[in-house]
Amino acid sequence: MVNQSSIREQLSTEIQDIYNVLDTVLDPEVPVLTVVDLGIIRNVRKENGTIQVDICPTYSGCPALDVIAIDIKFALDQACFTNSKVNYILDQPWTTNWISEDGKRKLKEYGIAPPQGSPDKGQLGEMDKTIICPICDSKNTEMISAFGSTACKSLYRCKDCLEPFDYFKCH
């Protein structure tokens, strides 16, 4: 008989392996961030032989969510975790605070200004604060539109290097 602690060890190694697979699945709309960087993986567990992956939407209408679920299943299949299920959960609502530091760095390198500040009360919907240009680090920027190419981004322009850029808005 296998003792309980070795089962747990075995399980946690397996879960760790699954996380490593998930860390290869990219957000289709921001293809430098993995779903782990983005902070939308809420839970991974094994129940009766099935791997259950709980993910949360960034925005209610995010059209990427279904694609992400398919991509996750595909990646797990490829890694021989063939019995998996992706669940959508809402509690707690996703926030840009959950984007990893690594994720924020990747966003900036990709030319998207990472979320600045916190989406706490009072800052949500607030667009007046200074957004730093991801290309030249200038603070001399202006908002062109609160809504950018995807729901999660706003459109800005740098008045020093004159480049337009996306800002991943606080949420």
Partner: peptide, 11 residues
Amino acid sequence: NIALDHVGQAR
């Protein structure tokens, strides 16, 4: 984008 939010909420 706003329309998408509303439709997503409806779902």
